[in-house]
């Protein structure tokens, strides 16, 4: 799972019907403290807001995490980071 911060949201009315009701957020990936590119992530927790530090799951797992068949998403937000300890 990789980490990021919620930077915005995406609204699309014309989309695959399986994506109905799936909140789409714009997330800036954070890799080793450096801000990476902005990607679209489906918010499985349905609680993520601007500026939240989150972690995401990708590929097939992202499609399965909604647990209603396979939702056509490739990245899904699955949790919030309370403490991020980098000891080495």
């Amino acid at each position: 799972m990789y980490t990021g911060v919620v930077a915005g949201s995406v609204v699309a009315t014309v989309k695959d019907p399986a994506l109905e009701g799936v909140p789409l957020l714009l997330v800036r990936k954070i890799e080793d403290g450096r801000e990476g590119d902005l990607i679209i992530a489906a918010d499985q927790t349905r609680q993520a807001g601007m500026g939240d530090y989150i972690y995401m799951i990708g590929s097939k797992e992202a499609a399965r995490i909604f647990r209603r068949g396979n939702i056509p998403v490739d990245v899904a937000i699955v949790g919030f980071i309370d403490t991020y300890n980098e000891e080495i």
Binding site: Q44, T45, Q47, Y55, I65, V78, G79, F80, I81, D82, T83, Y84, N85, E86, E87, I88
Partner: peptide
């Protein structure tokens, strides 16, 4: 891989 730290997360997918 090398373990370089850990992460605490209370709000997450209920399977975790």
């Amino acid at each position: 891989a090398k373990v370089v730290g850990n992460v605490i997360s209370t709000v997450k997918d209920d399977g975790y």
